[in-house]
């Protein structure tokens, strides 16, 4: 049987329900174990779709925007789960579930018509690690940005605690680590495919800007650890840059017809 986007909803809805239940149990006393198990179960159901889809596409589902959103909605609950297991914030699973649901619904309501073709430049062992590492990074940085935005908007009523800054630091550090790895994998791959490791292609230019944005955060936190609000602004700004890198370049007039990173145009 070939799995297509038409079947996505039958995997996605059960996953969302499982994640929502997991998020619900996180608020209960002694709900920790069921919460973790339910979230993992949801992830397994979701991954079953990715695996089957991969199988029937006969190529990794990483090429189009819709396909990268698929991974994004997979990694968000993972990031949430890791954070929950380690730091025990009860609200983090609610948060990751809502975010993942948004991306799932974008894919259900606007599935791009996909086909199996993958141009020769993308047929490389670097392809999967490059995109998967980036998507995981985006999930972490996205989580960091939303927590930051929340405290920037409602921070007056609620005092920002050191604990929250630690959480955001962790999101950004892990996100930046993966962002760097994704970028460097990209450079190594580019050398094999296009002859040079860095060509200032529009997507590369914005990836560099995004990376530098988060460098500013790391250095600023190191230098002025108590200036919370400024640091939170940098996180939100970094995420704006990331949005341009991820899909904004597809619409930028300055990048039209130049980017070798545009693959979804049929």
């Amino acid at each position: 049987m070939t799995i297509t986007w038409e079947h996505f909803i039958y995997f996605a809805i059960p996953s969302i329900i499982l994640w929502a239940l997991g998020a619900f149990f996180a608020y209960k006393k002694s709900g920790r174990v069921p919460s973790i198990l339910l979230t993992i179960l949801g992830l397994l159901v979701f991954f079953a779709f990715i695996a089957a889809f991969w199988q029937s596409l006969e190529r990794p589902p990483l090429r189009t925007m819709g396909e990268t959103r698929l991974w994004y909605s997979f990694f968000l609950p993972i990031a949430g789960l890791i954070t929950y297991i380690r730091w025990r914030y009860p609200w983090i699973l609610t948060f990751s579930t809502i975010l993942a649901t948004v991306f799932i619904f974008v894919n259900i309501l606007k599935p791009e018509i996909h086909n199996k073709t993958l141009m020769p430049a993308l047929q490389s062992p670097w392809f999967a690690p490059h995109v998967i590492v980036y998507m995981f990074s985006y999930a972490m940085l996205g989580a960091g940005a939303l927590v930051s935005l929340y405290f920037l908007l409602f921070g007056r009523k609620q005092k920002i605690e050191t604990k929250i800054m630690d959480l955001i630091d962790n999101f950004i550090y892990v996100g930046l680590a993966f962002l760097t790895i994704g970028m460097l994998f990209g450079a190594l791959w580019a050398k094999e495919a296009w002859g040079h490791y860095w060509s200032w292609d529009p997507k590369e230019t914005w990836a560099a800007a995004t990376w530098m944005g988060y460098l500013v955060y790391v250095h600023y936190r190191n230098h002025k650890p108590l200036r919370y609000k400024n640091a939170l602004c940098v996180v939100v700004f970094g995420f704006l840059l990331l949005q341009i890198t991820w899909f904004g370049v597809n619409y930028l007039p300055s990048a039209q017809g130049l980017s070798i990173h545009t693959y979804s145009a049929e």
């Binding site: 962790n170 680590a177 993966f178 760097t180 790895i181 460097l184």
Partner: peptide, 30 residues
């Protein structure tokens, strides 16, 4: 032909190791 490539790669590999370090530091800080 890029005779300086090995040095660029040396830098890239060091940064890859550094990124793993950054990931671990993030956990330790807590």
């Amino acid at each position: 032909r890029d005779p300086w490539l090995p040095y660029v790669y040396l830098g890239i590999i060091m940064m890859l190791i550094g990124s793993v370090g950054l990931f671990l530091v993030a956990k330790r800080k807590d």
